[in-house]
């Protein structure tokens, strides 16, 4: 399979299964930004191993890559957590008892993310909502709001950092 064919195949896969893969990641990690990263990693990994794919079920294959990556992410997150906390045994037991599949509801995680976006102060809220929720590019937001591109990019970057902190802090508290 040529390089251009592989790229076209990747674009096809993303347009068909992006939402499903993202939902799997969201459900398993409960973290919007981790889900976003893992979704990207899943498609990159799929692109790299396209030659090895037996061609049976693309959906199952992609979801398997995504779920394995989510488990790896949870394991490494747990390791980081254990390195900083003393009550490791209690935490480990709680993970082993609960099923991974029942930990998060994807729609709830998305709703929490949208609420967090709404809670951002201006001038970060509007670009964040346009970028994360409506899927506009930084250039499109800049044209719409008549602000310099660099300013919009920096607002999006800062909004992302604020959202990450806020969401992960809420997760720790719950």
């Amino acid at each position: 399979m040529g390089e251009i064919d592989s790229k076209e195949k990747l674009i096809d896969l993303m347009s068909l299964y992006k939402n499903l893969v993202f939902s799997v990641c969201l459900k398993m990690t409960g973290d919007y930004f981790a889900a976003e990263d893992i979704t990207q990693e899943t498609f990159i990994s799929a692109y790299q191993h396209l030659k090895d794919f037996d061609g049976q079920s693309e959906k199952a294959w992609l979801c398997r890559i995504a779920s394995n990556k989510c488990v790896d992410h949870l394991r490494s997150a747990k390791r980081r957590e254990l390195a900083t906390s003393d009550d490791e045994l209690i935490r480990m037991e709680s993970v082993s008892c609960g099923s991974l599949l029942e930990q998060y509801v994807a729609t709830e995680v998305m709703q929490n993310f949208k609420d967090s976006c709404d809670g951002l102060p201006e001038p970060y809220r509007t670009p964040a909502k346009l970028y994360f929720e409506e899927g506009l590019t930084a250039r499109e937001i800049s044209e719409r709001s008549k602000e310099p591109l660099k300013t919009v990019q920096s607002h999006i970057y800062r909004a992302r950092e604020m959202l990450k902190k806020k969401i992960r802090k809420e997760d720790l508290l719950t």
Binding site: M14, K18, N19, L20, V21, F22, S23, V24, L26, K27, M28, E36, T39, Q40, F43, K59, A60, C63, S67, L101, V105, A106, T107, M110, Y131, F132, G135, T137
Partner: peptide
């Protein structure tokens, strides 16, 4: 997991992915 997700309302992944 796949069946559960397909039965839930669909979530839009960020377009910039």
């Amino acid at each position: 997991l796949i069946i559960n997700i397909e039965n839930e309302p669909q979530i839009q992944a960020p377009s910039y992915i």
